[in-house]
């Protein structure tokens, strides 16, 4: 029943001469939440960006190894990047809505992918805003500027925007680090709900957050993946001393 969405094998990543990820091997189970934890600079965000080839934009960055999405390597020469990023969406640390209306933010992706029909777009926008638990708050102000929303609402709008192109995977890079506790709780709740439809991979500095929302936790340290396991086990009886030391605050 539990299938791996991503299967990463011997992944190495260099920024110029800096060896940022070292022989990473791990599986990301489908329709579940995977949390990546580790101190700053450990490579977890770099790893996240490998999953939809966002590192391609960084000059001097090179990647070797395999990253299989449903069995096929996304680093194959023939990979259609537009298609890949439609399948693997991303939400960033700071909410980054486009300077346009709420409606247009959500409709942006579908329009880009060729959806022009008004009714179809309206349905997609409503559905996406419902999924991201924002609909009830914005249903009457869909044509107001997105930048007028609160930080937490903006982040949920970004999730709606990511969801609008019907991705299979959502990558989230510290999605709550710029939000207050209430907005954070709202997003966390949302992430728990999203896992019934999507595979979610989330980078977080907040270990309690990883413990609360994820099914699997992967611990990164100095470019290596030290330990991967069910979240419950990682937070009660981690196997590796380094994981233990990190999550109990003995270093990091």
């Amino acid at each position: 029943m539990e299938k791996d969405k991503f299967s990463v094998r011997d992944l190495d990543l260099f920024y110029g001469s800096n060896h940022a990820l070292k022989k990473i091997n791990l599986q990301v189970p489908e329709r579940s939440v995977t949390a990546l934890i580790g101190p700053s600079g450990c490579g977890k965000s770099s790893f996240l960006r490998c999953l939809n080839r966002m590192n391609d934009f960084i000059p001097g960055c090179s990647v070797t190894g395999r990253v299989e999405l449903d069995g096929s390597d996304i680093y194959d020469a023939g990979t259609d990047l537009i298609h890949l990023r439609r399948r693997v969406g991303m939400v960033f640390q700071r909410p980054n809505p486009f300077p346009m209306s709420i409606f247009d933010n959500v409709a942006y992706g579908p329009r880009l992918h060729g959806d022009r029909d008004r009714n179809t777009l309206r349905d997609i926008v409503e559905e996406s805003l419902r999924v991201s638990a924002l609909w009830n708050e914005v249903r009457d102000i869909l044509h107001s500027p997105a930048l007028a929303l609160s930080g937490g609402q903006q982040q949920r709008l970004c999730i709606a925007r990511a969801v609008a192109v019907q991705p299979e995977v959502l990558l989230m890079d510290e999605p709550t680090s710029a939000l207050d506790p209430m907005a954070t709780a709202r997003i966390e709740e949302l992430v728990r709900e999203l896992r019934t439809r999507y595979t979610v991979v989330i980078v977080t500095h907040n270990m309690q957050q990883a413990a609360r929302i994820s099914d699997t936790t992967d611990f990164f340290l100095s470019g290596e993946m030290v330990e991967s396991g069910p979240t419950q086990q990682m937070f009660t009886s981690p196997r590796d001393k380094r994981t233990e030391d990190y999550i109990t605050g003995r270093f990091g």
Binding site: Q208, A211, F235, T236, S237, T243, E244, I247, T248
Partner: peptide
Amino acid sequence: FQPVALDLR
């Protein structure tokens, strides 16, 4: 402190 791992045990 919301202890985890060894601390929690």
